[in-house]
Design a protein around this nucleic acid. Structure first.
Lengths: 117, 117
DNA sequence: GGGACAGATTGATCATCGTCAATGTATGGT
DNA sequence: ACCATACATTGACGATGATCAATCTGTCCC
């Protein structure tokens, strides 16, 4: 259990660091980048993510999100899972509580892609 | 609440300049931002966009995209329309040809949202 | 005007997604 | 052992989206 669902993100630093404007993007990288953008492409998920990001380096308990967003607990759980799968958040279990933290490298990578103009 | 004002369609610079981490995002802005990310959330659309962005400030003719991407002309047209609607590209008709150019301000805005960590 | 061309639109199909109620799984407290 | 809590998973449903073939709309040239 608790086999780290921490999928790669392996070498973010060495990974394609370049903008969409540098050259026509490769299909494989397009698929990976689109998957990350897809995680950001839902209003409620952006709000969930923003609540976590607003806590800075601190981890945020899922129980703090179930209130004030106006959606059910399973839906929040669903969104958090998507964000973790996309590599934007990490999950850490502490007793009964699940704590989430942003992954700064992922955001840096996306910012790099959007360096245009 | 912060500003219940109507959003200015033209004033990108004065628009919400802040990251997701600055504060929990407002539902209205979450919807607008998610719409832009949604335009980026498809691999083929990222490739189309990248082809345009790779031309820098020059406009790119749609006819240059129909070859080399492996999808039909209507699908390319569909993706270009989505990118224009999202504000990431502008369209300019020149005779029989449609030319597309990136909108740097849109990308700057998205980079601002992703300033995390 | 008539034909050729660029590209947008339509309609259909198949897949994916957001959401919820209900249920399941683990953990902590007594 | 038992129950309450925190969260994940399942299954269902309605909505959205990507793609294509066929068709339509406009523009250029003779």
């Amino acid at each position: 259990m608790a086999t780290p669902t921490l999928l790669p993100l392996s070498d973010v630093s060495a990974e394609e660091c370049c903008s969409l404007a540098a050259a026509p993007i490769e299909p494989a990288q397009a698929a990976r980048s689109a998957a990350m953008f897809k995680a950001l492409a839902d209003p409620m998920r952006l709000r969930v993510l923003s609540h976590v990001a607003a806590q800075g380096c601190d981890a945020v308990c899922a129980c703090d999100l179930t209130e004030g967003l106006g959606i059910s607990q399973p839906t929040i759980s669903h969104h958090l899972k998507k964000l973790v799968e996309a590599g934007l958040l990490t999950r850490e279990q502490r007793g009964r509580w699940a704590h989430y933290t942003v992954v700064p490298e992922a955001f840096a990578q996306l910012r790099g892609l959007l360096e245009i103009g």
